[in-house]
């Protein structure tokens, strides 16, 4: 693969998207739904990292925490407070689900920054499962908890009577666009960052511009470190906001 990014036939050839190819871990067979692939590998590493951070580090149950335990506690407190602040006290019972989403996206995003690693959260299939999963669960929850009055969310009672149907149409459209934007935002950010790094890496093959290219990689990498955290945060807080709509549809 390294040869692909270097000059061929006298010109620069970029394959910035090759890093997202799904490959079987063992052999070269077709990729069935159960085949262990590089996606599987890096999701497995994410699971191991999460177990290391949240289970092994808290094994001591220390009142005065170790560094790792302190990180786990800070993340717990951060998401717990977010859920409590955004959705209110009755949203706290959904905290484990939101924590699962946050920690998976965060760890996957950061693991993807390791060179030669694979980034599951850059795949639209992955983020669409997350985004539509949140959308479906929140919609079902909204109808189960509030019945038909959940639809009142789309009917603005404080708007002028003439505008209400128009606003309702806009609200319904925006409601159904939510899972799309929710999932594409995450996948797009991660994919774009990684592709840009790869493009800069392609330029590094030219002696003349290689210092600039390497500086560019460094800068984009720094930006990606921010993006990895921010996107996990954004995904989680939007999940909380959608959940709040399901729990309290009457703003």
């Amino acid at each position: 693969m390294a040869a692909d990014a270097t000059t061929q036939e006298g010109g620069l050839v970029f394959h910035p998207l090759d890093q997202f190819i799904v490959k079987p871990m063992f052999g070269d067979g077709p990729i069935m739904w159960y085949t262990p692939t590089n996606v599987t590998l890096w999701m497995g590493i994410a699971i191991l990292a999460i177990i290391g951070l949240f289970v092994l580090s808290t094994r001591g149950r220390a009142t005065i925490p170790t560094r790792m335990q302190s990180i786990a506690e800070l993340m717990y407190g951060f998401i717990y407070k977010m859920v409590e602040d955004v959705t209110g006290k009755d949203g706290v019972k959904y905290f484990p689900y939101i924590m699962t989403l946050f920690i998976f996206i965060l760890v996957a995003n950061y693991l993807a920054l390791i060179p030669t690693s694979y980034s599951p959260t850059s795949m639209i299939a992955v983020t669409a499962v997350l985004g539509f999963g949140v959308f479906i669960v929140v919609t079902i929850l909204g109808f189960v908890l509030n019945g038909a009055s959940f639809l009142g969310m789309f009917w603005m009672k404080d708007a002028p009577a003439i505008l209400r149907p128009i606003i309702a149409v806009i609200e319904v459209i925006s409601y159904f666009v939510r899972p799309v934007s929710h999932s594409i935002r995450l996948a797009g950010n991660i994919m774009a960052g990684h592709a840009v790094i790869k493009v800069f890496a392609g330029f590094a093959a030219l002696t003349l511009v290689s210092p600039v290219a390497i500086l560019g990689i460094t800068a984009i990498y720094g930006l990606e470190v921010l993006v990895a955290g921010i996107q996990a945060y954004v995904f989680t807080i939007l999940t909380c906001v959608y959940l709040k709509d399901a729990l309290h549809p009457h703003h």
Binding site: Y34, M43, F54, T63, Q69, T100, A125
Partner: peptide, 30 residues
């Protein structure tokens, strides 16, 4: 299908690790 399958497996594993072990433990410590 491959990604979706492994993602669901991963999420289930993480959910059980978090909800059964990590969250009660950290909550108790706090």
């Amino acid at each position: 299908p491959n990604q979706v399958f492994w993602l669901i497996i991963t999420l289930i594993v993480i959910y059980f690790v978090m909800s059964r072990i990590a969250i009660p433990r950290i909550g108790a410590v706090l």
